[in-house]
C-alpha cells in the first residue's frame, strides 16, 4: 500500500501477488463431481436448494479430474477403489486440494475391517477433515471455509 495516495484516484487496487492469487483460487474452486457412499448424498444436499454451496464459489462441479482442483472424498474408500482414487488424484492439475468428508474417509469410521482403507490419508494427502457420519451439509460448508482459510495463507514460495 502507499501507491494509491501518490498516484491519486486511478481506479486501481494494489495488493501482493500472493494475496491476489490466493483470493482468486479461493473463490473459483471447482470440485470434482464424484461421490462414493452415504456422504455423497449429503454433499448433493449441500449443493441443492437449502444449503446452496455455490454461495462460496463452488457451483461448478466438474466430472473430469483434469478440470477440477478440489476433491471431496465423500464416503468410505475400499481397497478396490483406492487405486482408482489415487489415479484420479494424480490426474488433477496443480494446485489441488483434498477434503476428506465423513468419518469413513477420515479414519475408517465404524468399519474397521479388511475391505476399508483406514483413512484416505494413506493414499493421498488430505487438507481438511470433516467429522460426522455423515456430516451435515453445514459441516461440509464449514470444512470448505476452513480450506479457504488455508488457501489464503499459502505462501508464494510453495507454488511458484
Amino acid at each position: 500500500m502507499g501507491i494509491e495516495q501518490k498516484a491519486g484516484d486511478l481506479g486501481a487496487v494494489t495488493m501482493r501477488l500472493e494475496q491476489a492469487v490466493n483470493w482468486a483460487r479461493t473463490y473459483a474452486m471447482w470440485p470434482m463431481l464424484f461421490g462414493l457412499a452415504c456422504c455423497a448424498i449429503e454433499m448433493m444436499a449441500g449443493q441443492a436448494a437449502k444449503h446452496d454451496m455455490s454461495r462460496f464459489g463452488m457451483e461448478l462441479m466438474r466430472a473430469t479430474p483434469r478440470q477440477s482442483d478440489l476433491m471431496i472424498i465423500s464416503g468410505r474408500v475400499t481397497r478396490k477403489m483406492a487405486p482408482v482414487l489415487r489415479l484420479l488424484y494424480d490426474q488433477m492439475p496443480d494446485p489441488k486440494w483434498v477434503v476428506s468428508m465423513g468419518d469413513c474417509a477420515s479414519c475408517g469410521g465404524i468399519f474397521n475391517n479388511y475391505a476399508i482403507v483406514q483413512g484416505v490419508d494413506e493414499i493421498m494427502p488430505v487438507d481438511v477433515y470433516v467429522a460426522g457420519c455423515p456430516p451435515r451439509p453445514e459441516a461440509l460448508v464449514h470444512g470448505i471455509l476452513t480450506l479457504h482459510e488455508k488457501v489464503r495463507g499459502e505462501k508464494i514460495k510453495t507454488w511458484a
Partner: peptide, 20 residues
C-alpha cells in the same frame, strides 16, 4: 466384490476381520 487379485475368501470364519 473383491479385487480380482485378492487372496482368500473373506466371509469364511477362519479369515481374520482385519481389525486395525
Amino acid at each position: 466384490l473383491m479385487p480380482h487379485d485378492w487372496q482368500g475368501h473373506p466371509l469364511r470364519k477362519d479369515y481374520p476381520l482385519g481389525y486395525e
